[in-house]
Design a protein around this nucleic acid. Sequence first.
DNA 1: GCAATCTGATTGCTTTGTTAAGTAAATTTT
DNA 2: AAAATTTACTTAACAAAGCAATCAGATTGC
Lengths: 148, 148
Amino acid sequence: MSLRRTDRSLPIALLRARETVMAPIRVMLSQSGISEQKWRVIRVLEEAGPMEQTALAKEACLLLPSLTRMLQSMEEEGLLTRASDARDRRKSIVKITAAGRKVLSDHSDESTALAAALERRFGAQKLETLLDLLDELTERDAPPHTDE
Amino acid sequence: MSLRRTDRSLPIALLRARETVMAPIRVMLSQSGISEQKWRVIRVLEEAGPMEQTALAKEACLLLPSLTRMLQSMEEEGLLTRASDARDRRKSIVKITAAGRKVLSDHSDESTALAAALERRFGAQKLETLLDLLDELTERDAPPHTDE
DNA sequence: GCAATCTGATTGCTTTGTTAAGTAAATTTT
DNA sequence: AAAATTTACTTAACAAAGCAATCAGATTGC
């Protein structure tokens, strides 16, 4: 039995790195009572525009049942709207509202400052390299698939 | 308001990358009914030896309350033991058992194979670079701390 | 030596994750 | 076109995460 050292295990290393990076962001978000997940949802919506839930779930790294529940409360809070697609009435199109955008803009400066602080601490060049590697790893293609 | 593109946001990029990497591992673990979190706990315990819960929580990226509850069931399952420290009876020292080690060895081969497959797909050199960057980012030192 | 504070772990409550089942609308098959 | 299948989302049920409050054992100040 010879498992990798945990700090050379990619899943664990990714998780630890994320915890480090998220710590100050969690502080920021907790002040306005918005969860990490809701923050991701509105960021994706703002970036990608109105979209259906399945795509949104994928982009925001959430499972559809979790998303369904969250969207219900977020709709009640007025952060977004849902409307069923005219062409395909199974689909519901989610769209960010002005109030949703306001949540983003309320935290925009601080969020940018945090990102800048990280960039200073870690190095702009390294950050670019890291992001490139992560994007490449994530590659929206087929999964590794070794067991067959 | 100018937030980064989500794929250039480190927290989101880390999360998406992790989801990609974890997918096949989740398949492996689900077959033996062990959760991702328990897997991390026994890996850390095996690697670092007996340790108190606060340190274990940090290494395994869990909050103490979550860990407390997990340890209760893992102790019942015989994967580990808890004993209160003689010197400081607030602390409880967690130690992996033979049964706990067996869970690791049961998945050792497959786990190694998955890691190897990833290495082939992604490139050994890139993987090394990525792990180095992640380790450096995680750096067990003070957090960024910009708000003061 | 006792009150106040700090630390490590636990418990309670709400939200989220997870799996499975269910519903409704589209698509495919025959 | 009716039946069967697939797709998109929802609901349900239960485990786990996350946060706040609590408890017990140590430490510190007086």
